[in-house]
Amino acid sequence: MFPILLAAIAIFNGKDVPDCVKLPAPGTNFRPNVATATTAPWVDSNGWRIARAEGKKFCYDVPKDRVVLAMAEADAHHADAIIKFPPEDQPLFDKMTAFLQKIGPGPTHDLGDIAVKEDGSPIAGETLNLFTRRNLTFRIVGANDPKALMNVTVDSSIKDPNEFTYSIRQKLTDEKRLIRVYGSETVLANLTGDGKHVRIHLVNYGRRGADGLRVRVRGSYQIEQSAFFDSDSKAEEYTVTDGGTEFSIPHIDVYGVVDLIAKP
């Protein structure tokens, strides 16, 4: 949430902050030297790390030009974050701060299709990373949640996280997924709310803006408001069809939110 973020920034002077979960700088990398089946960029996102350590304090140490992405990610996952960034990025920080103030604090309850019980192992972490990467929404739970679409145990017995993630997607089916993002491999979504009021947080981890996204959310909603950082984009070409709400976004730079309200 931005007020905590601002407060935290104020006390951070480059020294290690005790009891904070360190997060790597978010972004994308193309790793041609790593065996890969596709040319899809390697997205470094922390949504899964934040979900794993919910309620804790997080800290980023980001290189030049990444501060807005770190702020976007923290806001999208309502993380209490402390961000160290190069002084020359202060204008970017101020700009994103103004944007976060403009959109206001949204709901903080994560919505997710999958209730995950996990063992904290590296394999489980990689699997949760892939869930985030694939926009397979999840919540970490201590016990099975009968209200979730799926209950899944993610632990060190998983041999191939990629294959496992795909199997979960197939079992869930694309039709039933809470959110789909079309037109970008680098825009990841997090949804917060109570089902009646929903905020979709869209974070673009790519090095350039994404044009012409199409977003589909399960359920029938009206668009209450939408706002995008450093862009006058608005959610448009809205339609409700086949059990889902769809809209287009002409351009997303780093971050945007779309607030939905359930149709009566």
């Binding site: 596709t38 899809a40 795909y166 997607r169 694309d174 993002v181 079309y182 970008s184 491999e185 070409e237």
Partner: peptide
């Protein structure tokens, strides 16, 4: 956005 073919070939994220 209204006119598309949707298919999942290899598990890709964007199926449209």
């Amino acid at each position: 956005p209204k006119t598309y073919v949707e298919v999942d070939f290899f598990g890709e994220d964007d199926t449209r």
